[in-house]
């Protein structure tokens, strides 16, 4: 359904007034200096340029621990407005999480409740990190659809693209001007500059068929062993990843009430695929390490229509072994093309 996009503009100073108004009936979250999305309070400083945002949308719809059985009461709670969501996370949310937890039968009731509570206000990336490479995996550092509202900081102005009815309601209390052609052009120029900057962070372009096949067909044990030398199997790369959703059900029943908690899991853990009898299809570290790439670049494109890596760069910043996903991929290409 094509929705007519209204683009408003306002002075960035006015943003605080807008956030204050939203806070009356909603829980508003904004980026902090640590790159965390935290509760907005009037007068607080907001760090619009911190990337990556460490708490992405992930934790709001798919918490690290969530009781999925034995807690069927869903009290009516205030909507949550996440302000400052990046396009890399939005793409993961819509294409991967919404697909697996809502569209693929059976839908997950718990996810649905959390998802419906969210309003998403995305923000253009103006100051990407060195670890950002969304452009190389099919993304862009700005949002043109999929969120409720997208904000772009252009000089002293903010432009606001309104994509949904919910988004429209957010601005109904304000008398805002339409953005002019000139302002939109300035935004466009800025987007082009940032996009080009990010594309230089990683030159190997993601190609659906190409990269997936490269990963799948590389069975060189030595290659994967070399790349995973410093892997500590901590699972950090999985937990911060906006497309990872592997989870394990923990049994927390009390007396006669059966309760289950769904918890994040990591495919890098040795016991991930092991069965009780002891068999384990990926008993070696390099097999699990390769599997992460196989999942993201070979399987997920077929399952979800996008690359399983959105190029957010969190895993690069997280890894205590300083493993850079780009380095692993680059090596594959070099090896094949010489």
């Amino acid at each position: 359904m094509q929705h007519e996009i209204n683009t408003f503009k306002f002075l960035s100073l006015k943003l605080n007034q807008i956030l204050n108004t939203w806070s009356v009936d909603n829980l508003v979250f904004v980026p902090s200096d640590k790159g965390l999305l935290i509760r907005y309070n009037e007068g607080m400083k907001i760090y619009w340029d911190e990337v990556p945002v460490w708490t992405g949308v992930k934790e709001f719809v798919f918490p690290g621990r969530n009781m999925v059985l034995g807690n069927e009461d869903f009290p009516k709670e205030k909507p949550i407005i996440l302000v400052g969501v990046r396009n890399c996370d939005l793409r993961a949310l819509i294409n991967v999480y919404d697909n697996i937890f809502l569209k693929e039968e059976p839908a997950d009731l718990n996810y649905k409740k959390l998802r419906e509570r969210l309003l998403l206000v995305t923000v253009d990336c103006n100051n990407p990190a060195e670890s950002c490479f969304c452009v190389s995996t099919g993304g862009r550092p700005y949002t043109e659809n999929g969120s409720d509202v997208n904000l772009s900081f252009v000089e002293e102005y903010v432009t606001a693209d309104v994509f949904t009815e919910k988004g429209k309601e957010l601005f109904s209390d304000f008398d805002l001007k339409r953005a002019s052609e000139k302002e939109l052009q300035k935004r466009e120029d800025r987007r082009t500059t940032v996009t080009s900057k990010i594309s230089k962070n990683y030159e190997l372009k993601y190609d659906k068929d190409d990269l997936g096949k490269l990963v799948e067909s590389n069975n060189d044990e030595n290659y994967w062993m070399e790349k995973s030398t410093t892997c500590m199997q901590c699972g950090g790369c999985n937990f911060c990843c906006p497309t990872c959703y592997c989870n394990v059900l923990n049994e927390v029943s009390r007396k006669k009430t059966i309760r289950k908690v769904l918890q994040w899991d990591s495919c890098q853990f040795p016991g991930y695929a092991r069965v009780a009898g002891g068999a384990n299809p990926r008993v070696k570290l390099w097999q699990r390490f390769k599997n992460r790439y196989y999942c993201k670049f070979t399987l997920m494109p077929g399952e979800f229509g996008i690359c399983g890596c959105t190029g957010c760069g969190r895993c690069i910043q997280t890894c205590p072994g300083e493993i850079d996903i780009r380095d692993t991929l680059r090596g594959l290409k070099d090896e094949k093309t010489g």
Binding site: I100, F101, E104, P106, D108, Y245, C246, N247, V248, L249, D265, C267, Y272, A273, R274, V275, G277, A279, P281, C295, T298, L299, G302
Partner: peptide, 19 residues
Amino acid sequence: LEKNMTCGFGKCRHCMVGP
């Protein structure tokens, strides 16, 4: 096949072999 089926309905990826 006996694999580590955890959720049972394709939401946790534990039991995947190949595709």
